[in-house]
């Protein structure tokens, strides 16, 4: 499509005024409304409305039935002091620490290697990307087997090389690492593809110039490659932190509603409090806290980007 467009001679813009035939203001508003109507209804009914409603709920006592009563900040006070919810928050952060940096670093290294893999590139890509298109439930079903100490081939391999394999999903110190392993396995391919797209956009002339200047491989890595893909790094770090804070599917498939405290995360907590305890107020307060944490984390990353993210335009 872009090809068809670019074959037409580039339009020469001489007239600074908006070239489209001017219509009256009201007319354009109506036309715009026509085109926007479906998404506008969706925005109001399924996003802004629920968002306001969630904030109201977080300040209320309500089980979904009967009367709603005003709770002030009681729900928040409860959320911030409850030891179980705090443990779930710590678990979520621990999961993010175990998952995001290892996944990004290994995805970057694999992407670098794949760039140099020549004709076999797309062959390798098939393997790394296949888990990305697989549903998290199917993935969790496979790993449920791989994490079960009675039948796990993974544990047999570990045991045979002299490592005492843990009971992944029951041992409190292994349950979060187990989630990190599955989600790295499933998410790696996506990040590899993103890094490869970033690496491909670096002009080879930069490396040629560096070669002429006699730059070492290490210098090229830190002076060219990393600065040039820093927008990709920022994008992946923001999105992968957001999604790691939302981990839920694996836990639910692994452990249903019986996850031990050591394996509960914030979203799991929200779903349990809302849909098995029907305490919509507290659950909404947890959701608001999650949202605010993500806003702060993303804001910090965006604020820090000036120091290290390099934009070509």
């Amino acid at each position: 499509m872009t090809a068809t467009v670019s074959t037409t001679p580039p339009p020469v813009k001489t007239d600074p005024a908006p070239p489209a035939p001017r219509r009256r203001k009201g007319y354009d508003n109506l036309q715009a409304l026509g085109f926007l109507a479906p998404q506008l209804v969706g925005l109001i009914v399924f996003m802004v409305g629920p968002l306001v409603f969630a904030i109201v709920l977080s300040l209320s006592n309500w089980s979904g039935f009967g009367n709603r009563s005003w709770a002030g900040f009681d729900n928040f006070a409860y959320v911030l002091t409850d030891p179980d919810i705090r443990q779930s928050a710590i678990n979520t952060i621990w999961f993010t620490v175990l998952q995001v940096p290892p996944m990004m670093i290994s995805a970057f290294l694999i992407a670098l290697m794949m760039q140099n893999a020549g004709k076999l590139k797309s062959f390798y890509r098939t393997f790394y990307f296949a888990p990305v298109v697989t549903s998290s439930v199917a993935v969790a079903a496979i790993w449920l087997w791989l994490f079960n100490p009675d039948i796990s081939p993974l544990n047999s391999v570990l045991n045979s090389v002299g490592i005492t394999a843990p009971d992944w999903l029951q041992d409190p110190s292994y349950i979060i690492p187990a989630f990190a392993i599955v989600s790295i396995w499933q998410g790696l391919g996506y990040q590899i593809v993103m890094f490869m797209a970033g690496l491909q956009s670096i002009s080879p002339t930069m490396y040629e110039a560096a070669d002429i200047d006699g730059a070492s491989e290490v210098q090229k890595m830190f002076r060219i490659t990393l600065p040039m893909i820093s927008p990709t790094i920022l994008f992946l770090s923001i999105t992968s932190i957001i999604s790691s804070f939302q981990i839920f599917d694996y836990i639910y498939v692994f452990l249903d509603t019986n996850a031990p405290q050591a394996g509960r995360t914030i979203v799991y907590e929200i779903v349990q409090i809302a849909f098995t305890e029907f305490n919509f107020g507290v659950a909404s307060a947890v959701a608001v806290c999650l949202f605010v944490s993500l806003l702060v984390l993303t804001g910090l990353q965006l604020a820090a980007q000036r120091r290290w993210v390099h934009y070509t335009e």
Binding site: A32, L36, Q39, L43, V45, F46, M47, V48, G49, P50, L51, F53, A54, L57, G64, I242, F245, Q246, F248, V267, I270, V271, A274, F275, F280, A283, S284, A287, V288, L290, F291, L294, L295, T298
Partner: peptide, 26 residues
Amino acid sequence: REPLFLVFLATMMIPAQMTIIPLYII
């Protein structure tokens, strides 16, 4: 137009779990 577009952009930041309870009620 510009403010409305900013609202659209801003909603991309909102995690699905934030609105799931009100959505369920709706």
